[in-house]
Design a protein around this nucleic acid. Structure first.
Lengths: 175, 175, 175, 175
DNA sequence: CATGAATGAGGCTTCATTCAT
DNA sequence: TATGAATGAAGCCTCATTCAT
């Protein structure tokens, strides 16, 4: 699994299963005792990565604090995870557009985000997007996070500034 | 070319060249009269689509109007193109993450956006992101556009509302 | 034709007909107005080259001189032609082992050597190989010529010495 | 390998790898488990055949006997191998002129002939070719062997006579 | 007759998947 | 259950040959 992430991040989804097996230290045949199919592996990987990413945003969430604080916590967690797991992010970028990843997997992945979605819903309650579909708002937010992480990665010296600017943009949209 | 867009939108980048040829009404061999390589085709396609998309946002730009009006024009053009060209958008999504698309192609593509970038720069001049790198702001904007288009496509009945909400979010970020 | 020689010498028999056409300054299609088939071209080329090579050995043959003198003349002509036409030689090396060159072509080519063969027959009349089949002797001779040319080409500084050594070997075999 | 020899002898170097695989009783894909590339197969084949041929000439070489005896031994071994392995010989003829066979392979192959070359050097020590480059002499010898084998193969009834005539020619050249 | 784009069969190679050990 | 050699379908690309202009 870790192997798959590394290989897919580096080579894309067309990476041979044999190479993933090698990286994982198992034979090419053994891979298929764990995953019936390459598509299976990709789907499980997708779900797992999404879940992991979601978990990173909600652990230790200060549920008693005010909304802004909680959003800030999620924001921080998200950024930290993304920056600490560049390969995971790259792999997800590939998996996200793949035809091999089924609608069911996308469904399953979105469930991991229930808590984040709920928080988002509370945050925008009295904002400009109060009447927009929640998923739409979530998409906007995801876009902002991705852009922010991209620039923090490219220009680590000004990471702090990008972080602040990104959060500023986010908060403006929500409120 | 049009054929490639259609096939890639439907099947992804792993679509056989033979299928693209067939869709275009030419033999599999003929494809390589026009493109030396599959990668070549993908790169040219990427550059062309990006250019076309950029063109859709800046034609008839009211350069004398105030900034908000111009941003609104670009926004409208962008949305219209995206909604009218779902296959092109899908193909671009695939091409954007592909390893086959070279850095040179990305470079070339970004040149098409010079005008839009300049406008963006003017718009955020006195806004919260006035000190952020322009490309960072552009990424944020792209994220918002993509999210908006996604939801206008998924829920055409409320297209107007999504449009408005998206622009609202955009404008908030810039000013 | 000259083009074919050049290209085949450089690339072998797998050289594309299009490349030969280009070198000759005609379109790929035009080639097939002159030669029905690539195999046709190769066969004609083989016969022509063999004939040319044979001609180079017998022009101005001093038919009145003694046998050794005549053999010496053929030897000289052969060496000269081979050294002056390295591409032709290379092309012939490829054509000689090709399956595309038919038995008829080999037959036709050998006819060009009638005069040389007759001379050879006279030369060995009282020699050690007087009872061997003429073609066998011819093969031996060809082997010696080829070896000599190879070394004269590789080491032009000592060309004279190789020439002499080669002829010495030849004459020893014949007499 | 044996399959490759057979197929290449029959069809030349343009023989499909699939056909070689089939002859060997393995699938087309399996071939590439053993040889990364068709060129690889050809190079290994060339080296192996050359080595085998060289080995056939020097096994049981009577190193204590006089030079003529030793040359005779090599001659016999060479002829025997060539006559017993017509396919190997044909394959070698193709491989010898191929562009796919690299200079390194030729280098490697020539190393197999160190012993034969040394013997040759001793044999011609006081002969007419004593000052010619050894490799030149070797080429002459190879030419004679090839011619002899060709005729022994074509006309097996007189094999004995051709053998004798060939050796006679050889010995005349050396001494 | 020449052109050169188009054809399409065929070759080399890759790789997901299977299976005997 | 693990191994890794074997399978064979499929993909990219080449090139002899054809044919409309």
């Amino acid at each position: 699994m870790t192997a798959a992430i590394k290989i897919i991040a580096a080579q894309g989804l067309s990476a041979p299963t044999a190479m993933i097996g090698k990286e994982a230290g198992v034979s090419n045949g053994a891979l298929f005792t764990y995953f019936a199919t390459k598509a299976d592996l990709l789907n499980q990987l997708y779900i797992e990565l999404k879940a992991e990413m979601a978990a990173a945003t909600t652990t230790d969430l200060p549920t008693e604090a005010d909304t802004r604080e909680q959003v800030r916590h999620v924001w921080k967690g998200w950024l930290r995870w993304a920056i600490d797991h560049p390969q995971e992010r790259r792999a997800l970028a590939h998996l996200g557009v793949s035809h091999e990843v089924t609608a069911e997997s996308h469904e399953a992945a979105s469930k991991s985000y229930a808590d984040v979605a709920a928080l988002l819903d509370r945050s925008r309650a009295s904002g400009a997007l109060r009447d927009a579909p929640l998923m739409f708002v979530a998409s906007l937010v995801t876009g902002i996070v991705d852009a922010t992480v991209d620039y923090m990665t490219q220009d680590p010296a000004s990471a702090e500034k990008h972080d602040a600017a990104g959060f500023e943009a986010l908060w403006r949209i929500l409120t």
